[in-house]
Design a protein around this nucleic acid. Structure first.
Lengths: 113, 113
DNA sequence: TAAATATGTAGGCATATCCCTACGTATTTA
DNA sequence: TAAATACGTAGGGATATGCCTACATATTTA
């Protein structure tokens, strides 16, 4: 396996999504984030590092404190990828066609049955 | 760690995103998918299983073949989560720029345009 | 200046992940 | 019916992940 540090990976973890949710409201220090979750501080620190590495967080150093700022433009990569299928998922929601005889495969392979 | 079989996890893997891309065009058998990637068939089989478990794929058995159909409504969960930050990601770009007030970000921004 | 505070990170543990090679089973073909 | 085909999955290896407990470092406070 090979480390993947992209946005899709970053948001796959629920704790990181929570962190994003928190700091999107207002910037927080690592400690402040940890307190809200009852998660170990160092764990939060690692999550923040990952979010930073993929560009979703920007860290502002203030003395010994580090404020984590959400910087969510990169989420547009996910949005772009997902919305390309929007048409598709509406189409399939639309109908029970999948379970009837109207789907592509049935048409193509009907002769086999 | 605990296994997470949700949509966010499912799409975090690039191979699975590729599979989704393929079968969103038209349903394919496991073998057909494997051939397009030069990936081992069993690996594809496992990815399809994961996609199935989180509801992104629906499998149609036809004799000894199994056609994998994209069923992408569940992607709306991702879309919902991402788009809640859409407003924010435009704003955060501005505030970051304001704070840094200089070149690094400007260059990045310039490239994007 | 010494103690307290905020944080990063090394090290370690348990488990997850991704990939592969068999191998078993069901279905189709010759 | 025997061989070929399509597929799932067990088993295993290498590495990633998520979490924790120290411990090290820098900054602030008393």
């Amino acid at each position: 396996m090979e480390k993947r540090r992209d946005v899709f990976h970053a948001i796959s973890d629920p704790t990181r999504r929570q962190i994003i949710g928190l700091i999107s409201i207002n910037p927080l220090t690592v400690n402040a984030i940890a307190e809200r979750f009852k998660t170990n501080r160092s764990t939060v620190s690692e999550h923040v590092k990952i979010l930073y590495e993929c560009g979703l967080v920007w860290v502002e150093q203030r003395g010994r404190e580090r404020y984590c700022n959400a910087r969510l433009e990169k989420l547009s990569k996910v949005e772009t990828w997902v919305t390309q299928y929007k048409k598709h998922w509406h189409a399939s929601l639309d109908s029970l066609e999948h379970f009837l005889d109207k789907k592509v495969v049935s048409k193509k392979k009907a002769k086999k049955r």
